[in-house]
Structures are given as structure tokens and as C-alpha cells.
């Protein structure tokens, strides 16, 4: 397989929509328990996809399976039109360098400062001058809206919101094309969550990212997501913009988008973003 990036991209463009991640007929089990059962999902280039589902329903499992952290029983996952199972270790690494992951609790390395955390993937993969390493780290810190003095702090000295931002800076260290976010706004206050949503939208525009966001935050879903996919019973039961979700007759979706939290948030009256937000 000595194809250049451009030609694989062309092949993808010719085949229907331009999807950077294709999940086909995925089955994942934990022991006897079936978590994902024949799941299909496409993530299109340049979109922000919100992924919703009940707690414990397998949202994070799907993300972990795409990332290769959980094993699947059946099905196919294509990232950049490459089947990750059949790639050699080297080629897999090359794909892994093109995505960045923001874990729910940040997963910053606790024994390193924020700067060292951000530089860690850079130092592993890139060759450049010490000056440029420092400048790139400072740039990423600025991009995610952290103060410069956060660079030399350790994760234990940061607040919850700052940890998320620092972890986002690390996820962006290698200028990835896909960004995975696991509940990015959980644990943030409504103002912080709103800022984080805006940050993700800005970064997505600036860097041309594709964002896969697992979230419970109704404001994020209606505010920044281009498309939403809903998970229930191990399958994607609905896909589309927020209006499609609102119009769906599926009982779980009705409960989710028309429940008291959503109503209090006046989803239906269109003043949604100004009001309450799930804060779990």
C-alpha cells in the first residue's frame, strides 16, 4: 500500500459522503453482556457530531472501540478509509497521530507540568528546535484559552475547567484532523461549559477539525453540533440535526429531548441556550 494521502482521499470522495470514520455492523460485548449490537455510524469530514445515549449505554465504549482501547467481537471500523485491524503497527501509529483525544477527566500525566504534557506527544513524534517546542506549547496553551502561567503548573494545581483546557491543548499537540471528546463539558459550570463549547466551535473552524463528541449536555447538542447520533439498545436509533431529534417519536428520544430539563431549558421555544444546562 504505497498510496499517498491525496489519492486515498480522492477514493473516499468518490464513494458517497466524505466520511473520516465509518463504523459498520459493530458488536462489542463485555463477557455475556452485549453493549453494542450491529452499530453503524459515519462521521463526516469537518462536522461536529454529538453522540448521545443513556448512561452506561455504550457511548464511551464506542469511542474506546474506535480508538482501539476496547476490543470488538464483530464489525469493521474505517478511519481515513483504512481498516485499523489490518494495518501494520507503523501505519496504525500514523493514523493515531492524526487524532487527538480529550478524556472525560483529562487524563493529564500527573507528574508532568502542563507544558510537558503538551510537549510529550510532540517530542515522541516530531523533530524540531527546542525553541519551536516551547513556542508550540505556548501557542496551544493560548489557543485553548489558558493563561501563560498555567504552563508550569502541575495538573493537581489546576481547576476542573483548566484541566479540560490543558487536556484539550494536549489533544491538539500534533494538529490532529479528528478530535474525540468524552463529555467535554461535564463538571463545568454553565458559563465554563458555554465557553468550552465556543472554544471547540472556534477551533473546529480554524483548524478544520472533525469532532466526535460524546455528551449529555443539551446546550452543546443544540449549540455547536452539526449532527447528532443517538444510541439506544446498542444501535444508532436516530441521526441528524437537532430538529430531527426533536421530531423523533422514539420513546427514549422523546424523554431525552422533551423531558423536564429540556423543557426548562425551553428547547421548544427556541431560547434554549439562555437557560438551564445539565451539569452532571
Amino acid at each position: 500500500m504505497v498510496v499517498t494521502e491525496a489519492s486515498t482521499g480522492d477514493v473516499a470522495r468518490r464513494a458517497q459522503v466524505d466520511a473520516v470514520i465509518r463504523v459498520h455492523d459493530l458488536e462489542v460485548r463485555f463477557g455475556e453482556k452485549i453493549i453494542l449490537n450491529g452499530l453503524n455510524l459515519d462521521v463526516r469530514r469537518g462536522e461536529i457530531l454529538g453522540f448521545v445515549g443513556a448512561s452506561g449505554g455504550g457511548k464511551s465504549v464506542l469511542m474506546r472501540t474506535i480508538l482501539g482501547l476496547a476490543t470488538k467481537k464483530r464489525g469493521k471500523i474505517l478511519v481515513f478509509d483504512k481498516d485499523l485491524d489490518t494495518l501494520s503497527v507503523r501505519r496504525r501509529e500514523a493514523v493515531e497521530r492524526r487524532w487527538g483525544v480529550l478524556f472525560q477527566h483529562g487524563a493529564l500525566f500527573s507528574s508532568q507540568t502542563v507544558r510537558q504534557n503538551i510537549q510529550m506527544p510532540m517530542r515522541e513524534y516530531l523533530t524540531m528546535s527546542e525553541r519551536l517546542f516551547d513556542e508550540m506549547a505556548a501557542l496551544k496553551i493560548e489557543l485553548v484559552g489558558l493563561k501563560p502561567d498555567a504552563a508550569d503548573k502541575y495538573p493537581s494545581e489546576l481547576s476542573g475547567g483548566m484541566i479540560k483546557r490543558a487536556a484539550l491543548a494536549r489533544a491538539l499537540a500534533l494538529d490532529p484532523e479528528i478530535l474525540f471528546l468524552d463529555e467535554p463539558t461535564s463538571g463545568l459550570d454553565p458559563i465554563g461549559a458555554q465557553e468550552f463549547d465556543d472554544l471547540i466551535a472556534t477551533l473546529q473552524r480554524t483548524l478544520g477539525l472533525t469532532v466526535f463528541m460524546v455528551t449529555h449536555d443539551l446546550d452543546s447538542l443544540s449549540g455547536v453540533c452539526d449532527r447528532i447520533a443517538a444510541l439506544a439498545d446498542g444501535k444508532v436509533i436516530a441521526e441528524g440535526p437537532i430538529e430531527t431529534m426533536m421530531a423523533s417519536q422514539h420513546p427514549w428520544l422523546r424523554a431525552y429531548f422533551h423531558g423536564s430539563r429540556a423543557r426548562r431549558g425551553s428547547l421548544e421555544t427556541g431560547h434554549f441556550r439562555s437557560s438551564l444546562r445539565r451539569d452532571d
Binding site: L139, P148, D149
Partner: peptide, 11 residues
């Protein structure tokens, strides 16, 4: 977005 500006030196 990425215009050159002097960034704070690392300590």
C-alpha cells in the same frame, strides 16, 4: 489565528 507574537518565555 496563529499570528506571530512574542510568547512568554518558559522558566
Amino acid at each position: 489565528e496563529v499570528r506571530y507574537r512574542p510568547l512568554p518565555e518558559s522558566h
